[in-house]
Design a protein around this nucleic acid. Sequence first.
RNA 1: GGAGAGGUGUCUGAGUGGUCGAAAGAGCACGCCUGGAAAGUGUGUAUACUUCAAAAGGGUAUCGAGGGUUCGAAUCCCUCCCUCUCCGCCA
Length: 423
Amino acid sequence: MLQVSYIRDNREQVLERLAVKNFKQVNLVSEVIELDDKRRSTQTSLDNTSAEANAAAKQIGELMRAGKKDEAEGLKAKTGTWKEDIKRLGDQLAAIEEELYQKLVLLPNLPHSSVPKGLTPEENEVVLENGAKPNLPESALPHWELAAKYSLIDFELGVKITGAGFPVYKNKGAKLQRALINYFIDEAEKAGYSEVMVPLMVNEASGFGTSQLPDKEGQMYFVNEDNLYLIPTAEVPITNMYRDVILKGEDLPMKNCGHTPCFRREAGSYGAHVRGLNRLHQFDKIEIVQVAHPDKSYEVLEQMSLHVQGLLQNLGLPYRVLRLCGGDMGFGSALTYDMETWSAAQQRWLEVSSVSNFESFQSNRLKLRFRNAEGKTQLAHTLNGSALALPRIVATLLENNQTEKGIKIPEVLVPYTKFEWID
RNA sequence: GGAGAGGUGUCUGAGUGGUCGAAAGAGCACGCCUGGAAAGUGUGUAUACUUCAAAAGGGUAUCGAGGGUUCGAAUCCCUCCCUCUCCGCCA
C-alpha cells in the first residue's frame, strides 16, 4: 500500500510511475487525495469537539467534588450537542477512512526508475544470460517422460490421492527433493540468512500484510472452517513475522530463509505448457527474505539476485536474468528480477526464481518500521526471492543432464543425494 | 470438545467510574560519581493522526478488538478474538 503522504507530495511522479505499470484507473490518485483532505478536516472537527467535551467532563468532575451540584448539572445539559457531533463526526470519519482504504489498496506499487515500460512478458528486459545450452540428441526426453522412465515422479498416483498438480515423488526422485532442499538451505545460511520453519497456514491479517489479499484471493486455498489460507509462498509467514514490529536501526538488515511447501490454486491455467512439473498446485520452495534499510534495499536486491545466480551456476544450469517490465510485474513490487533456466528438451525458458524489492509497499501495511538515525520511526523495505523453487529446477536438471547412461547429478548435490546417477 | 482463570507500556505488575497515557520496579538511553567498572545517583524512555505550531509544545485517539451505558470508562454491560490451568482426545 502506498503512503498517502507520498501520493500527496509527489502526485505527478506517482501518475508517471503508474503509467509504466500500465495502470488505468488514474483518477484513483486524485480521489485518494480528495478523500484524505476530507479525512483531515473531519478529523480536525472531531478532535476539536472532543477537546471541548473532554474539558467539560473534567470540569463537571471538579464541580461535583466541590459540591457545586447545580453548576455541574447545568454543564451536563450542554453536553448533548457535543455528544451528537462526536458520534456523527466519528461515523463520518470511519466511513471516509474506509473509502480511502478501499481506494488505496487498488493502487499498485510504483515501479523503480529502471523498470522498462511494457505490457507482456516479451517486453521484459534480458539483463544477462549465462551458461551454455546443452545440445541434446533427437531422442532427448522431456522431464515427465524421464520421471516415468526412472520411476521418479508418479503424477497419476497424485491424481488418485488428491488431484492434478499434486505429484508423488518416489525413489531417487524423492531423495532428489530432499537433497535440493537441504542444499539450498545450507547455501542460504552460508549467505547469512537464518533459517525459520513457519506455519503453512496463515490468517487473514497475514494475507493482507504481504498483499496477497485482497489482490490474489482466488489463488489461495482457503480453509473455511477456521478462516485460514494455505500459503502460496513462504514469503507470507516469514515477512509477517515482522508485522507490527519496530526494529532498531542497527538490526537491519534482517535476513531469514525457510523451506515450505507452497500451495497455489492456479485457477484457469491448463494446457501443454503446464505439463509435468511446469505448474503444480503444491510444490516445495526455499525462500529468502530481507528487511532492509530504505537506503540499502537496491544493494540488497542485487545481492539476492547474485545469490540465486550462484545457485544456478553451481548446479550447472544455463540461465538468464530478466528485469520485468511494468506490465508483467507483481502488484506490490517496485523491481523484480526473474531467473529462468533453459529446459533443453522442452526448448523453452522456465521461471525458477523471482526476486523483488517491495520498498515500503508491504511494510506500510505490515506497520513494519525501524528507528532511524534521528530516532524517528520509518517504514523499512522488504525484499524476497525464491532460492529456489524445486519443480522446474528438477525439470531442467533431468532434461539437461540426461545421457545414455542415465541422469547425471550435479557435483554440489552429490553429498546430499549420496548418489551420482539416476539410472 | 467440557469446566475455570485471564488479556494494562520493552518486561514484571498496580489500578473496580473523574486528579489515568496510566503507580511501582526492572530494563534501556544519556549525565553525575569512578583511575576504569560495579554499586550509587539524576534525568529521560509508547504509537498514530493533526489545513494548531518554526520549534519547544498543544489537541485527539489507543490499557486484546469492536460496540454500548455515562457529562466522564483501563475500570460497568454486550459480542468477538486470543492466552493459560484442569479434564477429555491425541502425533
